[in-house]
């Protein structure tokens, strides 16, 4: 994904918004959302929850389900009403155990999806998240490149042994 001057929320698919925003510092996102949504009426559509989710898989021989392990998971689904009367809902499901963060992300989702007042600020966060994501991706590529083994040298060693 490339970083452009267009609105991020128009370029990036909604399904990726939470992934990108969750790359940012939780306190930064929560503070931005709290400032932006001051005076808004935000109520849960389902109860925000955090805890451990079990990962269930089926074995390939008997197709019996078994629990591979557990992951931290937090979910939120909120209804937003602005003082101007705009109504929206947003949701988030993230592998964190920070309930305040996931609630803020759900509000971000609602703001971006419905272009609520001040959505440009959340759009800017989305841009920062994309940049952070690209940096991480590049770092991983570099690490992978650094661990690459050149097996062609082994052929040269074997040839030397035979001689």
């Amino acid at each position: 994904m490339s970083v452009t001057t267009e609105k991020m929320s128009s370029i990036v698919d909604r399904s990726q918004w939470i992934r990108l925003l969750s790359k940012l510092d939780a306190e930064q996102v929560v503070a931005e959302v709290n400032t932006l949504s001051s005076g808004w009426q935000i109520t849960p559509k389902s109860l925000p929850q955090s805890g451990l989710a079990m990962l269930k898989l089926e074995d390939s021989a008997y197709n019996e389900p078994f629990y591979l392990g557990e992951i931290p998971l937090a979910t939120a689904w909120v209804d937003i009403v602005t003082p101007e009367g705009s109504n929206a809902d947003g949701a988030a499901q993230v592998m964190v155990d920070n309930l305040e963060f996931v609630q803020a992300l759900a509000v971000c989702d609602g703001i971006l999806a419905n272009r609520l007042p001040g959505y440009e600020r959340i759009d800017e966060l989305l841009r920062q998240g994309l940049e952070q994501c690209n940096r991480e991706e590049q770092r991983r590529k570099n690490m992978l490149a650094a661990t690459r083994v050149d097996f062609s040298l082994l052929d040269a060693v074997e040839d030397d042994d035979e001689n």
């Binding site: 109520t43 849960p44 909120v78």
Partner: peptide
């Protein structure tokens, strides 16, 4: 976020 008393 305002959560109604009965859900707390």
């Amino acid at each position: 976020m305002k959560i109604e008393a009965i859900w707390q």
